[in-house]
Simulated assay, not measured.
Amino acid sequence: MNIQLTKFITYLAIFFGAIQAQAFEPKSNFSVNLERVRYCQNFWCTQQYTQPEYQVWDQEGVSKTHQLYTQIARIQQPMRENVRNLVFIAAGQQPPGYGSESSVTGQEDNYKKDCGVSKGSCSRSVDGRSLARQVLDSEYFPADDTFFAVAFDTQFNYMVSSSEKSRMERAYLNWLKSKAYASNLETIYLAGSSRGGCLAMRLAKALRDDPAFRKIRTIVHSFDGVCKWDQNEMGVTSSFFRSPVNSNYLSYYTDLDAQFPYKDNLYIRQLAGGDEVIEFTGVHSFVYSATDVSLGWYAQQWVDLNHITIDRDMTPTVRDLTVVPFLQHLDDIF
């Protein structure tokens, strides 16, 4: 090959690589209106109110307590007939107290402080280093045709009963479906960390099981997603694989091939750590393969990071192993 041409191609690759790297750099923080599905109308909370936006939680019979603590921010909401893209991103299960940060939704530590159950909504910040901020800034989900929401606290918690989880899943599912007409939709993007990863996967399965939504391009990103094996959530079993990069970690097996029989226009990516979520509980993430795989419809990568680091850490070295590969995956799809 001509030497000048070789140099030109090399410089071009470097140039576009630099542009892509810059695209994944942190953005500015931005404010959102964080809404409570249900809130207290008096001091003793004997009078409560489910907000009109979230009436489906009542309709599906989700418990009043779980409604009270579910907090969601609608970042973009065009008219239903204009929506071509649905984006929903969910944080992991929130610990007791004022709430924890998330590298996925971008919520900050202590975001619940001064935003108690008596407040229907509060202004909160989304971190510019997070997946949600980067996705919002991407060219793939324009503001004028994308419904975009993030859940800081889904209440889709590990110890919740199987029946209550099903009610919650239906509430989220029907709420999202109400934001667009299936015939207009081009892309559905669901992402989540830990328990949020399980919710994202369950919602994707439910949408794929619906013939009206089955052929729509569906992208699912799970950050060390955690489903409960003794409830057979998402088909997760007690069988497990040891992490190939850290033998102290393990993840439970689920047959995702069977869970998603309709694979056209389906793109799932799972980041697997396998660390025990809470010590001595036996709670771990789920995986489909013992090794890194790329099957077209499904990709999986093991990382030697503990669960909390995957869930919350946004330092540059960690972010390059967590958030950035998912952004690259989006680029590869589009």
Rank of each mutant, 00 (worst) to 15 (best):
Q4D: 12
L12S: 12
Q51Y: 02
F43C: 05
F43Y: 10
F15Y: 12
D114K: 14
M79V: 09
D109W: 06
E108A: 07
F88V: 04
A132C: 06
R36H: 08
E108G: 07
T6S: 11
S118E: 11
M79I: 08
I89H: 00
P52G: 07
V87A: 02
Q93D: 14
C45E: 12
Q48Y: 07
F43L: 14
S130W: 07
R129A: 15
G97Y: 09
R133Q: 14
Q77F: 04
S63D: 13
Q134P: 09
I72M: 06
V62P: 03
V87S: 04
I14D: 04
G17V: 06
Y98S: 04
R36M: 01
I9Q: 07
W57E: 02
K7Q: 12
A13E: 06
G120Y: 00
V126D: 04
T46E: 12
D127K: 08
Y39M: 00
P96Q: 11
T70H: 05
A91E: 00
Y69P: 00
T105C: 06
K64E: 13
E25D: 08
Y98F: 14
Y39R: 00
H66R: 13
A132E: 05
Y39H: 09
D58K: 14
E108S: 03
R38F: 00
F16V: 14
K64D: 10
A132K: 00
K7M: 11
F88H: 09
P78G: 05
I89S: 10
F24Y: 15
L86F: 01
C122F: 05
V135L: 15
G106W: 01
G61L: 00
V104H: 04
K27G: 15
Q107L: 01
R74N: 13
S123R: 12
Q22I: 09
Q47W: 09
R74L: 08
A21E: 11
S31V: 11
V62L: 03
Q77R: 12
F30T: 02
E101N: 11
T10D: 08
L131Y: 06
F16P: 05
P95K: 00
Q67M: 06
Q4W: 08
S102K: 05
D127N: 15
Q134W: 04
T10M: 11
S103K: 06
K119W: 06
P26H: 03
G17Y: 05
F16Y: 13
S130T: 10
A21D: 03
E53K: 15
I19A: 10
H66Q: 11
K112Q: 14
R124I: 05
V135I: 15
S100C: 06
S130A: 13
V83M: 10
T46H: 09
S31N: 14
P26G: 07
R129L: 02
D114Q: 12
K112A: 14
Q59A: 01
E60Y: 01
S125P: 03
V104S: 04
G92S: 06
D127T: 05
Q94L: 05
Q67W: 04
Q93L: 08
I9R: 11
Q76L: 08
S31D: 14
V117Q: 02
E108W: 03
S130H: 00
S130Q: 07
I14T: 10
Y98I: 02
S63E: 09
C122R: 02
K119I: 03
T65C: 01
A21H: 11
F88Y: 15
A90V: 04
E101V: 09
Y49C: 01
V62K: 01
S31W: 06
K27C: 07
Q71I: 01
Q107V: 04
Q51I: 02
I75W: 09
Q48W: 01
S125E: 15
G128W: 03
